[in-house]
């Protein structure tokens, strides 16, 4: 693993906290592009955790200051340089009111599927990218199931009523 402090040094907008880089979500594109420019990195995963109560996300390694109520969005960057195959985590905290983050699809194309998944399950709207559609749930699904305030419907009617309407109109 390359030294995270050295990486943070070339990224003025990032601070190191809890073994990860913490950035403002709005600066994600800039930071990730800078990381990519370092060479030997690849976007591996995008994870998102809903923390409505601001639960402290103490890591296995050690406790950290409590976070406010937020979505904890993390870009997991794979360090492909020789001799290390570890993960560099770039975190940001997003308000519940404005669940939005810029898309990094222009930096790494693998972000396409991953961002769609986060949008579908967690409802983070990624801006500045084409067809941000649901990928796992059907297109007319309501809500984002992995949010903590998602209420599980008693019984999901399938096919949904909207399909009957479509069929009646003679659509596909």
């Amino acid at each position: 693993m390359r030294d995270i402090n050295k990486i943070a040094a070339v990224l003025p907008k990032a601070e190191v906290r809890d073994g990860a880089l913490v950035i403002q979500a709005s600066e994600a594109v800039e930071v990730l592009a800078a990381v990519k420019a370092l060479g030997g990195f690849a976007l591996f995963d995008i994870t998102c955790v809903d923390r409505p109560a601001g639960t402290p996300p103490a890591s296995a390694e050690g406790a950290v200051p409590a976070y406010p109520a937020c979505f904890e969005l993390a870009w997991r960057i794979w360090d492909l340089s020789e001799g290390s195959k570890d993960i560099l985590t770039i975190r940001s905290f997003i308000d519940h009111d404005r669940a939005e983050a810029p898309s990094v699809m222009a930096v790494w194309k693998s972000a396409d599927m991953l961002e769609r998944e986060v949008w579908d399950l967690m409802g983070i709207r990624f801006t500045g990218r084409p067809h941000l559609e649901r990928v796992l749930n059907r297109a007319d699904f309501e809500g984002h199931p992995l949010r903590k305030d998602f209420v599980m419907p008693k019984r999901d009617r399938f096919p949904p009523a909207s399909w009957d309407k479509k069929a009646a109109e003679g659509g596909q």
């Binding site: 591996f44 994870t47 639960t55 402290p56 296995a60 390694e61 993960i87 985590t89």
Partner: peptide, 17 residues
Amino acid sequence: AAGEAYTMIEAARGVQA
């Protein structure tokens, strides 16, 4: 204990985390 873990293995179809 409270905390998080991110683990990866080489699965049959690629790296799984």
